Simulated scan of single mutants.
Amino acid sequence: MSRILKLGIPKGSLQNATVELFRRSGWKIDINGRSYFPEINDEEIECSICRAQEMSRYVESGALDAGLTGKDWIAENHSDVHVVCDLVYSKVSARPARWVLAVPFDSPAKRLEDCKGMKIATELVQFTKDYFAERNIPVEVEFSWGATEAKVVSGLADAIVEVTETGSTIKAHGLRIIHELMQTNTRLIANHRAWADPKKREKIEQIALLLKGALLGEKLVGLKMNVPEQSLEAIVGLLPSLNAPTVSPLYQTNWFSVETVVQNGLVRELIPKLMKNGAEGIIEYALNKVI
C-alpha cells in the first residue's frame, strides 16, 4: 500500500473555505485553473478535488484515503466510512447547516404530516425518501439539479427539501420553513483500510488535530495587558481562560504583564471592565491555532 495519503478536497461552495482552513492549519493548497489535482506543500499528501456529494463514495471505495464532505452526503450515499472528526465551518457561518422542508407562504401545510401526497424537489433524494417513509407519509420525491427554490415558484413541485444556514434565500423566494430534517456539518472521513494503516492513520490524525486547532483559534483571541499590583486580583478575577492567566512581573516595577485567551465575543464587554479596574496597554491579537 502506498504511503502517500490521497486526500479529497470538496469542490464547489466549500472549496475556498477548505483551502483557507488548511492554510491556517499549515498546509498551502495551490489550485491551478481547471486542474483536479492541486499541489500541496506536503510530500506525504496528494490532493484531488471532487464534489462533496460524491466524496464519501470515493473514500469508501478506496479511490481516496480520506476527504472532507458533509454529514448529509454520507447519509445520502449510505457510505461505510470512518468519521475522523466533525469540522463546523462553511462559506457563511461557523454553525451547522440545516436541511429543511419549505412550502409556499400561502400553502395550507403547517407540519410534516400535511405534506401527504405532495411532490417534493430536492438534491438529497434518498435521504428525503427514507425520512418520509420512516414516518409513513407518502410523498413523491424528485431530484433537483439546482435552483430548487424556483421549482415551487414555477409550479414544478409542491415543496422543497433544501439546505440553508440562515434561511434568507428560502424566504426571499416566497417560501416558509415548516420542518427541519437534519443538521449537517463538514466531516473529515477516512477509508477503513487507510485508517487501519498506521502511517496513513498518523497523517490523518495530524490533519484532524491541526484543522480542529485552526477552527478553535478562529473563535478565540489573545489578550495581553499591564496591571498594577494593587489591581492584580481584581483583573485576574475578571479574566476567563483555558486554564489560568499567565502573570509575569515587569522588570523593576510593581506592575505585572497579564496574558490570557478568551472567546472572541466576550472582548467588547471585557475590555472596558479591565480598563475600569486598572489595566493598561491592552493588546488584542488573533490566534492562528489553539491545540
Rank of each mutant, 00 (worst) to 15 (best):
A234P: 00
Y131T: 00
D130H: 05
L239D: 01
L287D: 02
L209N: 08
P96R: 08
T122W: 07
D158Q: 06
H179E: 12
D72R: 15
V100K: 06
G281I: 02
N288G: 13
L232W: 08
L274F: 11
G217S: 13
L220T: 04
D130T: 05
G146W: 07
K219P: 02
E54H: 12
V221L: 13
L87P: 13
A63E: 10
G278F: 11
A190G: 04
N191C: 09
L287G: 01
S48V: 10
G117S: 03
I49R: 13
L175Y: 07
V163E: 12
R201T: 03
N288T: 15
D130P: 00
N77C: 10
S61P: 05
L124H: 03
F105Y: 08
V267R: 03
A150F: 08
L266W: 06
C85I: 14
C50S: 09
G265K: 06
R95T: 14
I29R: 04
K219V: 07
H179K: 03
V163D: 00
E44F: 06
M1D: 10
K224G: 15
K200P: 03
E218G: 13
L239G: 02
V139T: 04
D80W: 10
E140K: 12
K219M: 12
E233K: 07
N264I: 03
E54S: 11
E165V: 14
M182F: 11
L287Y: 08
L216S: 10
A279N: 09
L112I: 14
V103C: 06
R111L: 00
Y131S: 02
D130Q: 06
L68R: 04
N288Q: 15
E233I: 05
V163H: 00
G8E: 11
K151F: 12
A94E: 11
P138L: 08
D65E: 07
K116R: 14
R187Q: 15
E218M: 08
V81E: 09
S154W: 09
A159Y: 09
T148K: 00
K203C: 03
L239R: 03
A109G: 04
T253G: 00
G67P: 11
V227E: 08
E60V: 11
F143T: 02
S2P: 15
P108W: 12
I204S: 04
T253E: 03
V236Y: 01
G155W: 06
S35D: 12
A52P: 03
I74M: 10
E284S: 10
S144D: 02
F143A: 09
